[in-house]
């Protein structure tokens, strides 16, 4: 695998991160969800390569804690 670039690729990471959080400023949870969906679709089309997209989706999903992980986490 590893067609997906997981090494640093963004020149100014702090700037990017700030912009990402900024994108959500003044949005409620529902609106933020919409904005995220727009963003994912725009980026996915830009990437284009289906193998890369599938790998990214797989990694994204694998990182979600399972419900048992969540319940055993210390409060």
């Amino acid at each position: 695998m590893a067609i997906l670039n997981i090494e640093p690729n963004i020149a100014q990471p702090d700037d990017f991160y700030e912009a990402l959080i900024d994108m959500h400023r003044d949005l409620d949870a529902e609106q933020s969800r919409m904005a995220n969906a727009h963003l994912i679709l725009l980026l996915a089309n830009h990437v284009g390569d289906e193998a890369v997209l599938r790998e990214a989706m797989q990694r994204a999903r694998a990182l979600v804690p399972t419900s048992s992980d969540v319940s055993t986490r210390p409060a």
Binding site: R33, M34, A37, H38, I40, L41, L42
Partner: peptide, 9 residues
């Protein structure tokens, strides 16, 4: 959410 996002885009 994704369906509507596609339509909005």
């Amino acid at each position: 959410v994704f369906r509507d996002a596609v339509l909005r885009l």
